[in-house]
Every structure is written in C-alpha cells, then in structure tokens.
Design a protein around this nucleic acid. Structure first.
Lengths: 194, 194
DNA sequence: GTCTATAGCCCGATAGAC
DNA sequence: GTCTATCGGGCTATAGAC
C-alpha cells in the first residue's frame, strides 16, 4: 500500500481560506484568480481542477460557512431549554464569532450572495433565522413572550443582535462585544418579553 | 439670446437614475458602462464628460442618495420634540422609503461603498446614525430613556428598524411595513425605554 | 456637447508539459 | 495532480468626427 500524503487536501483548504478572506475584504468581483494564486501559493490549474470555476469556488465557501454556523447553533441549542436561553444561544454565538472570527461574521453579514449564486437561494442567511423564528413562535404560544406576530418579534430580536455585530465589525462599537453582551441581550429581550 | 434647451441636465439625471437602479440590482462591478449606455440612451462620451470615471459616477450617486436621506430626516425632526417622537421620525422615514422607493433603501442598506470609495468614508451610512445617537444620548441624560450606554441603546433601536426594512426588501416580511409599523416601533421603544 | 470607434488592459478558463 | 503559458472576450477610458 502506498503511504498517503499527509495532506491530500491541504492545498484546497488553503485556497478556501485565502479566497474567503479576499472575498470578504474586497468583494467577489474585485478578487481575481491570479490574486488567489499569489496569496495561496496554489496554481491556477489546481484551483480549476477542484472547483470548476470561480463561481464554484465561491459556492463551496458559501455552503461551508453557512453549515458551520448552523452546526454550532444546533449544538448549543441542545444544552438549553427556555426560550430566553435559546435566544441567548443565538446572540452569544453571533457575538462570539464576531470576536473570534470576524471574517466569518463579515462574510455572513455583508457578502452579496447574488453575485455568484445563479439560482438565488431561498433567502440569504435564512436557515438559522428560520430556527429563531420557530423558537419565538413557540415562546409566544406558551406565553413566554409577549403576544405578537412571531415574525416581527424574531425580526426585532435578531435585529438588535445582528446590528451590534455589524457595528462592531465596522469599528463603531470599540470594545469587545463580551463587554456589552449582557446589555444588548437585555435590550433585545425587553423588546419582546411579556 | 439663445433659447435654452428645456433640459440641459436631463441626460445626466437619466444616467444617474438608471445607474443607481443597476448598481443596486447587480452590484457595482457587475454593471458595465456599455450597459448603462444601453439602459439610459446616453452615450459613453457624454457620461465620461460629466463624471470623470465610473467611480466618479458611483460617488455622485452615493452622495446624492445620502444627502436626500439626511435632508428628509432633518425636515421631519423639526416638527417634533420628545425623544420618542424623534426616534419615531427615524423609523417612519425608513419604513416610508422602504415602501415608496425600495431602490433607495436597498442602496443605503446593501451597497458596498468600499467598492468605489477609495478614501473610505468615516463609516458607512453614518451621518443619520450619528444624529440618532445624539438623540438617544440626550434622552438618557434627561431620564426619558433607560440609563445605559447611549451607543448601545442607539444600536438597539436602529437595529430593530433597519432589520425590518432589510427583511421587507428581501420579501421575508410580506405585507407593507405600514401595517406592522406600530408593532415594530413599540418593540424598539420597549427595548430602551426607562 | 454629444456621438462612434477603438485602443489597451486584465480577466476567466483551457491546453498540455511534467 | 500540479504546473506554466496562452487564448478569446469584455471591460474602462480616450480620441476625434460632427
């Protein structure tokens, strides 16, 4: 048997890392394949062997990033029960990613997916959002939240959280979000609690 | 004396209109000058005479759009006194534009200004936001709002409003915002009131 | 002032050596 | 599997006729 190379996929993961960073920084159309080649040290030919096209590369990054968020969100949800805590999971995850991997959060918040997704996805960044909607709907039903249109309550809660992440990334909020996390979660909760 | 042409600037305003629509729809880099020529009926030469470059055209659109928002906001603010009403002005204006001129709101919410603004502006879409911050700061000082970091309260309020506009544009919220305006404003207010 | 024609550049993607 | 070299195309911006 042949000895397996240690890293049969190290090159493509290097490409993915570098490409996402560049896409986030400069936008899909401002990043050329030659730039990705220069920054990743992987040749054009190799890139095109693995991802059929530039668009294919972008789609791969897109799915990988959204899947990671969804997975981490699901993981956390398993550990809590109350509506308050479930929504808190969402907020904490968003804040944590914003600080530890701002590139990922920036990707989710700002990337214009329509630029490379020919078949426009149901709705951008929606899988986790639908989950939040369900949590809120159940909370209202149970009386854990103020009686209201569940969609609007979900919009309200996520609006507070995501806007904070947005402004943290843009540098408007200057300290780490861990410092103001409690205040923001309290605000978001106050907006929809009974 | 020569008879003035009726519309010495009709052509450039036509270009501006068409270009903003296209920029919003497809993104700055997905719109070529030939496309703007085709859609506006104005020739390349004329466009380059008035706006030095494609970037110049984009900058003009950017400033014009932000100025319009700022002006309409200021106008409304003059008519009200209380913190509640001033913040309500912001929300109502955002909702109104979202319904009557979604293209403009989409421009303000989603355009990646870094793509054409070489000198990156202080912060994107900030002039009106700073105004909101000041209103909130004053409200907290006076005791009209819960005692808190004024920046976080401003983030909270605008987060609710802007996220609603965002999801309305994306079609997640299906009815006109006028129908759920009161609920959203109530939520945003509940999040920061004393 | 407004147009058409075109120069010059860089990109995405392919072909084929190793 | 990974590389280099290169093609065809579409872009921004200019030149110059009207």
């Amino acid at each position: 048997m042949k000895v397996r190379k240690i890293n049969p996929e190290q090159k493509i993961s290097q490409v993915v890392m570098v490409a996402r960073k560049l896409f986030v920084e400069k936008g899909y159309h401002n990043v050329s394949i030659p730039q990705i080649v220069a920054a990743s040290g992987v040749s054009i030919g190799t890139i095109y062997k693995h991802f059929v096209s530039k668009e294919g590369l972008a789609r791969f990054i897109h799915e990988e990033t959204l899947n990671e968020f969804q997975e981490r969100f699901s993981q956390r949800l398993e550990k809590v029960e109350s509506v308050y805590d479930q929504l808190r999971c969402f907020a904490e995850l968003v804040f944590e990613i914003t600080e530890s991997d701002p590139e990922m959060m920036e990707y989710m918040l700002f990337m214009k997916h329509g630029e490379f997704l020919t078949e426009s996805f149901p709705i951008c960044s929606t899988e986790p959002f639908v989950r939040v909607q369900r949590i809120v709907a159940l909370g209202i039903e149970r009386g854990d939240l103020r009686k209201a249109d569940y969609l609007l309550s979900a919009v309200t809660y996520t609006g507070v959280i995501l806007r904070a992440a947005e402004l943290r990334i843009q540098g408007v909020i200057q300290g780490p979000l861990s410092e103001c996390q409690e205040a923001l979660i309290a605000n978001a909760w106050a907006a929809i609690k009974p």
